[in-house]
Amino acid sequence: MTPPILTVRDLVVTFGTREGVLTAVNGVSFDLYLGEVLGLVGESGSGKSVTGLAILGLIDPPGQIARGSITLDGAELIGKPEEELRALRGKRLAMIFQDPMTTLNPVLRIDTQMIEAIQAHERVSGKAARERARQALARVGIPSPEERLDAYPHQFSGGMRQRVAIAIALLHRPAVLVADEPTTALDVTIQAQILAEVQSLAAETGTAMLWITHDLSVIAGFADRIAVMYAGRIVETGSVVDVLETPIHPYTAGLIGSVPSRNKRGVPLAQIPGMTPSLAKLPPGCPFSPRCPRATVTCRTTMPAETPFAGARMARCHHPLTGEPLAA
């Protein structure tokens, strides 16, 4: 098997606040293989966006990467000089963000924002860069790209702006694209179109994707594998089919149960009781234990370890819903 393009090992990201040091990401590990789509799922505040930003080295003070390792093509990224990181950003590592209305600079024309992204990594003339920008816009399905290059962001709809952002992110055929809920702010119809386009573009360029979302239905038909995050930790990983059909962790099951579907018509939608815990007041044991229907005394006192399960799966749970943990 080929080695993963991106590995994250025991990543810890902390934020110094008035309430003390908060650990937003607490020992996250995963691998991302070339051409693969990994869905990173979790509620707001579970640390999924921070994980994405950490990969690009975009954690700003008061946040900092306290521990762990992130490698791209086998080379360590944490501790790399800023200039070397800058050279990787946009070139080998790209990122798109949630709100397309705010990711483009309102006072700069689209061509300026695309050409600068090309020239940040390659010595090309403005004219050649503009031509590449035009082709990139055409590739993401923007009609009459030549005229649209001269437009300002406010002249585009939200869906079109997200397409522009995607075109910019994919300009240099990056090895890894971190997509931080890029379709959440869009209409469902546009969402589907954009998902399909990103999928085909990424397949074309061989780009691996870390798709961050809180919406299980988005990645159900899209991702290869899923990692479920809760309170800064990955609580379950596995292939999409395995995780969605036979979840191991009660939290995953809760998430799946709360997705509306045709089969559950007329029945009240299941909810996970309670709220995501504040990072400042995490319970001593499993952070999900106060909301978990299966929680026992052990859960409230001891943090479950990452436990491998059959089928290249992993979960952190004392009382798994299905399957027997493999002997370590």
Binding site: L56, L58, R86, A87, L88, R89, G90, K91, A94, M95, I96, F97, D99, T102, T103, L104, N105, P106, V107, L108, T112, E116, A117, A120, H121, A165, I168, A169
Partner: peptide, 23 residues
């Protein structure tokens, strides 16, 4: 967000300050 996106594009700090912020 557009400053974060500009950084994710790999722009230099000078370019971000002199073009994106200043304007």
């Amino acid at each position: 967000d557009y400053i974060r996106f500009a950084r994710a594009k790999g722009l230099s700090r000078q370019r971000i300050i002199f073009v994106h912020v200043l304007k």
